Amino acid sequence: MAIEVGATAPDFALRDQHGRTIRLSDLVGHEDAVNVVLVFYPFAFTSVCTDEMRALRDGLPALVADDTVLLAVSNDSVHTLRVFADQEGLEFPLLSDFWPHGEASRAYGVFDEEKGCAVRGTFIMDKEGVVRWTIVNGLPDARDLQDYVQALGAL
């Protein structure tokens, strides 16, 4: 069961495609905090995931501002994410939930135990780290970028 609107977002520490550790607690809950768009997707290089990441890349100016960051999480290794980011021109952080396998995905309630990967879950957190909007889709169902834009506009 995915975490719900109004819940405090679980903290995590995941490495990005460059090997840097990104912690949610470094981004929210303090004076210099930002809003966070956290996008879980199953795997790099798959058709729907690639299309979604391209849409985020192309729509980044509508999503990210001085007070908002986009983080995308998959169960791929850091090395796979580096190649994927380079190939697709993805400049936002791609975070690896590879090991312990699916730990962050499980904390957010979007890990599919049978498939061994995250389903398509998106969580928008305010600067205090409270979930203000969420959507969870099955593996084959892409999300609509405009829904994110509208949700951010309501913060």
Score class of each variant (00 low, 15 high):
residue 11 D to R: 06
residue 23 R to S: 14
residue 18 H to D: 08
residue 74 S to A: 05
residue 124 I to Y: 11
residue 100 P to S: 14
residue 41 Y to T: 07
residue 13 A to G: 14
residue 46 T to P: 02
residue 65 A to P: 04
residue 75 N to C: 15
residue 130 V to K: 15
residue 140 P to L: 05
residue 95 L to P: 03
residue 107 A to G: 10
residue 140 P to Y: 04
residue 35 N to W: 01
residue 34 V to N: 11
residue 130 V to Y: 11
residue 74 S to H: 00
residue 6 G to L: 09
residue 109 G to M: 03
residue 85 A to M: 03
residue 10 P to R: 07
residue 134 T to E: 14
residue 42 P to M: 10
residue 102 G to M: 10
residue 27 L to P: 08
residue 122 T to K: 02
residue 8 T to V: 11
residue 86 D to Q: 14
residue 151 A to C: 13
residue 21 T to Y: 07
residue 54 R to L: 12
residue 93 P to A: 01
residue 75 N to Q: 09
residue 50 T to S: 15
residue 56 L to I: 09
residue 112 D to P: 02
residue 92 F to D: 01
residue 150 Q to G: 09
residue 85 A to L: 04
residue 153 G to C: 05
residue 55 A to C: 04
residue 85 A to Y: 00
residue 117 C to S: 12
residue 77 S to C: 10
residue 75 N to L: 11
residue 20 R to L: 06
residue 78 V to K: 15
residue 149 V to C: 07
residue 108 Y to I: 05
residue 84 F to S: 01
residue 93 P to H: 01
residue 21 T to I: 13
residue 3 I to H: 08
residue 96 S to A: 15
residue 109 G to T: 03
residue 126 D to F: 07
residue 76 D to K: 05
residue 87 Q to W: 07
residue 100 P to Y: 09
residue 102 G to I: 09
residue 60 L to Y: 12
residue 60 L to E: 14
residue 73 V to E: 06
residue 121 G to T: 04
residue 9 A to R: 02
residue 116 G to N: 11
residue 96 S to I: 02
residue 102 G to H: 11
residue 90 L to E: 01
residue 70 L to R: 03
residue 115 K to P: 06
residue 40 F to P: 00
residue 134 T to V: 10
residue 29 G to D: 13
residue 54 R to A: 07
residue 135 I to N: 13
residue 112 D to E: 04
residue 133 W to N: 07
residue 83 V to G: 08
residue 24 L to Y: 04
